[in-house]
Design a protein around this nucleic acid. Structure first.
Lengths: 172, 172
DNA sequence: GATGAAAGGACTAAACC
DNA sequence: GGTTTAGTCCTTTCATC
């Protein structure tokens, strides 16, 4: 997943089983569950579930626990996506690090080099932030109108879960 | 912040003070802090921080607590951003809801109507997911190479914190 | 992996300032 | 709004099965 996320495998090399999958689902939905309650939900004893969570953390599968905040309630009236064109890598990284309005920053393939999500107070603030990036290269800004899904919980990948496209395409 | 995040204000109409700001910073960094430890860090008694956290939750400022997972460790080798062009709103929402690979889905202004973040196992899986959206309208897919920032903690907005662009622009 | 015991810490509610 | 206290629950560690 890029240099920002170190490679992670369970230290013992063991795969994630059904218990781990259920633990991951529960903790992605509510990170403040007590180990006792988590044990009840996945039908494991409390020491057993504590040990599994500890291993998932040590293996780098669980990377942290965060409170999610409603940025609107914090006074940010606008969220936006900024696409940033080619520019000197280190300069963009530095500008991102100096810009607290940036929530997410992804370096991507294609015409645009970077895709950022930002939160700003109003249009004047949006202008101030966008201008900082405009001064380096071309940008394209889209205001977020509505969120259909965010931080969707992810479970271990299973190839058999891949759904074919809704219209069948013949293989070449 | 759009229809997906209900308007939220502190029920008593009171503003967030310095204690709330510090509590939000701590819980965004580590959602599993105990109320006792949180109290020590912000210099409040444990019942006092518990009550403040309860009010922040009730006011909709804190919307939840999530474990962050390393999707690479779950077997997803590729993360990508898909930009989706104009299409019938309800059909796109339904397709998003039926697609577990979608992590985030934002409805935005501009040429593209939707910006999605997805996680997939490999290129074949990427093809399968992208095709589902391609069949509805035009799409543009960029693979995430590197993450400079993700889920950056946000504090209450303060207009005096807005930084001017690095190059001064004269007002009209 | 389950169970049980013991020690230390955390949570809730109440009384109070 | 804040603190302190008291009772209950949770967590960790250990041992045993």
């Amino acid at each position: 997943m890029g240099i920002a996320t170190p490679p992670a495998t369970l230290s013992a090399g063991s795969a994630l089983d059904g218990y781990d999958t259920r633990i991951l689902a529960e903790l992605q939905a509510d990170a403040r569950l007590t180990m006792a309650e988590l044990g009840r939900r996945v039908h494991l004893s409390q020491p057993a579930v504590s040990e599994r969570v500890r291993k998932l953390e040590a293996a780098g599968v669980i990377t942290g626990y965060r409170a999610s905040v409603n940025v609107g309630a914090l006074g940010y009236g606008i969220r936006a996506i900024i696409r940033v064109g080619r520019a000197e890598y280190a300069r963009v990284v530095r500008l991102i690090q100096e810009t607290p309005e940036v929530i997410d920053a992804y370096n991507v393939t294609g015409e645009d080099s970077w895709i950022l999500q930002i939160a700003v107070i109003d249009v004047a603030h949006l202008d101030a932030v966008v201008t900082r990036f405009c001064l380096m290269t071309e940008t394209s800004t889209s205001i977020i109108l509505n969120v259909a899904r965010e931080h969707h919980p992810m479970l271990p990948a299973r190839r058999e879960n891949i759904r074919p496209p809704l219209v069948k395409v013949e293989n070449a």
